[in-house]
Simulated scan of single mutants.
Amino acid sequence: MSDSSSYLSQAGDRHFDGLADKFAASLYGGLRGELRLALLDRLLPEMLELHAQPVLEVGGGLGQLAGWLADRGHPVTLTEPAAEMLARARRSLEGRAVTCRQAPLQDLPSQVPGPWPLVSCHAVLEWLADPRAALATLAGLLAPGGQLSLMVFNRDALRLSNVVKGNLDKALADRLEGQGRRKRLTPISPLTHRQITGWADEQGLEVAAVAGLRVFHDYLQRPPEDEAQREALLELEWRYSRVDPHWRLGRYLLYTLIRPEEPAS
């Protein structure tokens, strides 16, 4: 595929049909993927009220988070637009309480309207042409008192990473978005903390908690050389994932957004 729209949907969203191997290796392969999953394993029980309630997992990809939730007693409905990714998720989740459905985020109000007590949407909005509208869609799926676990790719971290790598002109011009061309996996809509909090406020959602994932790893000049260094890095990542100013430069920003309970009549 050579044209610039090869991996874009009709809505202009980046999708991953034909890219499952690349996606798995890039986002979950190696230490950065291990850190992401290890930090989520620690952060989610702290940031969410988890009591085996039903979960809508949006853009579930290869099924890692759906499996984590199902293993903790949650009945999960996983949605994913890419057929290849969904097929892999189904295989990896076989035998667990997970229902898989092929659907883009924009179709969820008609396909899985809820309302849901818990919605998870990790590393999805940055691949969409209109992430603001997507957050509004997610907000509409929440029950009163419902929680949205939202993780997004941090634009400010991407800028710093480019500076560290010496891409000074690119950083000055603020040319940070990917174009969805070929097999490159730079998000087309990296997001800022200000955008998320502003859009959440528009939807009447409260920011209950926020953390940064990989606040140090992505700026290292050389990777850890042995297991002791890997463990030290994980401890540093965990220790400062919710400490200002460090969380603000995590490669991903993780939020718990709450739809307030409806006032009593």
Rank of each mutant, 00 (worst) to 15 (best):
A133F: 01
R159A: 10
L150H: 02
E126W: 10
R132D: 10
G140K: 12
C121A: 14
Q147C: 04
A123G: 15
Q147T: 03
E126A: 09
R132Q: 15
L128P: 06
P117G: 05
S149L: 15
V163G: 06
N162Y: 07
L148A: 02
V152F: 02
M151P: 01
L150P: 02
L160H: 10
V152E: 06
D130G: 07
A143H: 04
Q147Y: 04
L128S: 11
L158Y: 06
K165R: 15
A123N: 14
A157N: 10
G166F: 11
G166R: 07
P131A: 10
A123H: 13
R132A: 14
L160V: 15
R155D: 05
G145R: 05
L138I: 04
L158E: 11
D156W: 00
L128V: 09
D130A: 12
D156M: 07
L138C: 09
L135D: 06
H122F: 06
R132V: 08
N154S: 06
A136Q: 13
Q147W: 07
L135E: 05
L125S: 06
L118R: 02
V152K: 06
G146S: 08
T137K: 02
A136T: 15
F153D: 08
A136E: 13
F153N: 04
T137C: 15
H122K: 03
A139Y: 07
P117D: 08
P131H: 13
N154L: 06
A129I: 07
Q147A: 11
V119Y: 06
L125T: 01
L160I: 14
G146Y: 12
R159S: 05
G146M: 08
P131I: 09
S120E: 02
S161G: 13
D130R: 14
L142E: 02
L118V: 02
A143I: 04
A133V: 06
G145S: 05
D130K: 13
D156F: 01
D156V: 11
A133K: 13
L148Y: 00
A157P: 04
N154K: 10
G140Y: 13
V152G: 01
A134Q: 05
R159E: 15
G146A: 09
A129P: 05
S161Q: 14
A157E: 06
P117T: 07
M151D: 01
S120T: 15
V119Q: 02
S149M: 07
V163Y: 05
P117R: 02
G166C: 13
D130Y: 01
N162I: 00
G166W: 13
P117S: 11
G140L: 03
A129R: 15
L160P: 05
V163Q: 08
A157Y: 05
V164Y: 10
V164H: 11
K165E: 14
G145C: 03
A139G: 11
P144K: 06
N162L: 13
K165N: 09
R159N: 03
E126N: 08
A123K: 01
S149G: 10
H122I: 10
V119D: 00
L125D: 03
V163R: 07
D156R: 15
V152T: 04
V152R: 03
F153Y: 14
G140I: 08
A139P: 08
C121L: 06
H122R: 08
L150C: 07
S120D: 03
L141W: 04
S149I: 03
G146Q: 08
L135S: 09
R159H: 10
T137V: 14
G166H: 08
C121H: 04
L138Y: 12
